[in-house]
Design a protein around this nucleic acid. Structure first.
Length: 421
DNA sequence: TCTGGGGTCCTAGGACCC
DNA sequence: TCTGGGGTCCTAGGACCC
């Protein structure tokens, strides 16, 4: 059996930990640039606010109902996620991190000396006590069914945070009641296609013949079908090395000069390189993209991207930034109001330094050491204590807007929570 | 006025090989 | 005038996830 432990409305729950007065009140967390709603409590949902909605479109509801609003603070959420994860990892020996707020826990063997459901229930209580984060757990034979179970655990208080699908009867009942569009692996397109084919519930889908599913939905749909029928097939291996690393942002204000675009790209390239080195790896390709504001129909639309391949995989900020900047020359266009740009590093391989026989760069060790020293200074004295001059000053127009930010309570000694008595 | 970011996997089709 | 078959690798784009 496998369990999925899911933090309830995670980002909003973290904000509530540090703002205890918000208990039982509507809370929303915003995406980068305060653009969209990315997390919201049930109280906020009850007001008609939907996940993904642009902030400006629901501003009236938010102000009228005094909904608490926070700019997303991913550093804070990642730090809290680690604390929650560490409790889960101490509870079960084999776990797998699926996302910032979800963890799979392998329960095979535990039934020999305890009740797995009780084990999970005790874990949920402990997490609540130690971190104040509410968690729901679903237990079943496959990951997809465990996801279904966790939604039931969240939805119905009677389960006391843990729901188990361990019999054929429970599986069929759960799938007959579950919303087809909420099944893991069934997105908008697949849902539309299934509906058009007359399939209305996950149970009807699971009861279709396998070759019918394979013909219409190929491998991904077939895997979901197997999992819904209790046959595990979604890979359980931990992904040790990421295949790409990217940084991109929508700008606070649109920009039009090549210098500004280059400053943003240099900034994102440096950020990608930092991630690259932090996991002791190198990249073999650099992709740069930039585009205009797709919502402004009155302006000329433009989007372009370009990729450079490095002779030797590298994690050197100077080399990768230089490659990224020369790509900007190819995709920049005068007269375009740019709204977003980004850098994607690909062909990731282990190791920070690589060599070939005939190398145009002779001192790779020293150059990566220079980059590492910059990482160290920025870590010790704050982000962007040192950087490349081409990244520009602190108040660039392309910087994001964060009007409702919570401090980094857990990761910055200067931003600890202050309590007045 | 204001509309997110970071990933993975699959597939079709083109380029290339013998 | 007639112009194959089988295979691999790579890439772009789509679909999906949180």
């Amino acid at each position: 059996m496998i369990a999925l432990a899911d933090c309830n409305t995670f980002f909003a729950s973290v904000e509530k930990v540090f703002h205890p007065g918000l208990h039982g009140k509507p809370v929303c967390v915003l995406s980068s640039n305060d653009g969209n709603i990315v997390a919201l409590t049930s109280e906020a949902k009850a007001l008609g606010i939907k996940r993904g909605a642009p902030f400006f479109q629901v501003k009236d509801i938010i102000e009228k109902n005094r909904v608490a609003v926070f700019s997303g603070n991913i550093m804070l959420y990642a730090a809290m996620s680690k604390r929650v994860q560490s409790i889960m990892k101490k509870t079960v020996s084999r776990t797998e991190t699926y996302s910032i707020d979800e963890q799979f826990l392998y329960l095979d063997g535990y039934e020999r000396f305890c009740d797995p459901e009780q084990l999970m229930r005790d874990m949920v209580v402990k997490i609540r006590l130690w971190t104040d984060i509410p968690v729901s757990v679903g237990i079943a034979r496959t990951k997809t069914l465990a996801k279904v179970a966790s939604k039931f655990a969240k939805q119905y208080k009677g389960y006391r945070s843990v729901c188990t699908i361990d019999t054929e009867e429970k599986r069929r009942k759960a799938l007959s009641m579950f919303d087809l569009a909420d099944v893991w692996g069934i997105g908008r397109k697949t849902y539309e296609k299934l509906t058009a084919l007359g399939v209305k519930t996950p149970l009807e889908f699971a009861d279709k013949p396998g070759d019918w599913v394979d013909r219409h939905f190929h491998k991904p749909g077939y895997q979901t079908w197997l999992e819904l029928n209790g046959i595990p097939c979604i890979d359980t291996e931990e992904i040790l090395q990421r295949q790409s690393i990217s940084t991109s942002r929508s700008f606070g204000e649109m920009i039009s000069t090549k210098e500004q675009l280059k400053a943003s790209v240099a900034h994102f390239a440096a950020s990608c390189c930092n991630t690259l080195r932090s996991q002791d790896s190198s990249a073999g390709s650099v992709t740069v993209f930039a585009c205009s504001n797709r919502f402004r129909e009155d302006l000329e639309q433009y989007a372009n991207m370009a990729t450079a391949y490095l002779d030797v995989p590298s994690s050197d900020t100077l080399e990768i930034t230089a490659a990224a900047l020369s790509l900007v020359d190819g995709i920049y266009r005068q007269g375009i109001q740019f709204k977003k740009s980004g850098v994607i590093l690909g062909r990731i391989v282990p190791g920070s330094v690589h060599h070939i026989l005939f190398d145009s760069i002779g001192n790779r060790e020293e150059r990566v050491e220079l980059s590492r020293t910059m990482d160290l200074l920025n870590h010790r004295f704050g982000i962007k204590t040192v950087g490349l001059a081409v990244e520009g000053g602190k108040s660039e127009a392309w910087k994001v807007r964060r009007d409702h930010a919570t401090p980094n309570y857990l990761t910055d000694i200067d931003q600890l929570l202050t309590i007045r008595i």
